[in-house]
Amino acid sequence: MIWQFDVILLTLVLVCAVISLSIRDLMASAIVFGAYSFLMCLVWTGMGAVDVAFTEAAVGAGVSTVFFVATIYRTTRQSNYKRKDLFIRSFSAVVVSVVALALFAVIADFPYWGDPFSPVNDYVGSYYITHTMAHSNVPNVVTSVLADYRGFDTMFETCVVFVACIGIYAILRRRKKQAKAEDTAVKHVAHDSLIIRVASQIMVPFMQLFALYVVAHGHHSPGGGFQGGVVLGASVILLALAFNVKTTLKYLSEKSMIAYSAIGVLIFAGTGLLCMFLGGNFLDYSVLSQILPYTDEVMARSHAMLIVEIGVALTVMSAMYGIYLSLATDGHFDQGL
């Protein structure tokens, strides 16, 4: 890609990172972090990694900023700075500069940026690129590496998302109502707006349709399980923001949120166990051609990747929705942002 754009964007990214950590107002810090995320998404698009940029735009710049704003809404908006914090700031600056000097001494030995004969491009990358169509008939190398060649990592990543959702829910969920009125950082004004409600009602079905398209088309275009799951979760969060939390809980209740996140992990690990029962290794999809009708070994891998991506999308959607509900309603699950 055009290297001048990349250099300017990388410098802007550094500036945004420093500013985001040094602003004293926490809400402004979260918004600048959203801008930092968008700039990183542009950097990765410039380097050709569209899948990662898609995920970062949806997760980092979209949902993650919503999570930060929800937390800041429920706690406080200011961060205190006292004189005695200066000691630990300068001490950690010294430690970090020592580590940075050690790392700078190492990067002189790396292959230069854009080297087509570096070990990463030569051995591992070219093997995956040349063999992906022959092994599983999936043109998108990112999806085939994610779900087939490195399926174990994706399975454990899905488990991590599930554990995060369950952990936040378990810590924050409260059952009895507080007697006194809580004071929040921002004054809570509950008012209803017709424009926002109607516009969200128009957008949410299209968002969900697009998310299903992204999950199903992940074999041929940038997409896959994580991206589709995040867009699905964002559509439910949009519904919760435009209406109130009680209405959204009627559509997708708390029990079904927990159930869907567990079912997603079950689909993924269950496919692996099914392959083991049929005689192959764990997550060795080619033995599934015995039970799927009219498929040979290559197409069995392609179909099993789609099943696994559906499991990932289900878990990610429920996790996004569950974390948003736990954070925004402060555990009470009755009234949100």
């Binding site: 707006s193 424009i195 926002i196 516009a199 969200s200 128009i202 957008m203 299209f206």
Partner: peptide
């Protein structure tokens, strides 16, 4: 089309 639906609504919000 979707930018025309979404962005003015966000500004209104």
């Amino acid at each position: 089309v979707f930018v025309f639906i979404g962005s003015p609504t966000a500004s209104h919000a």
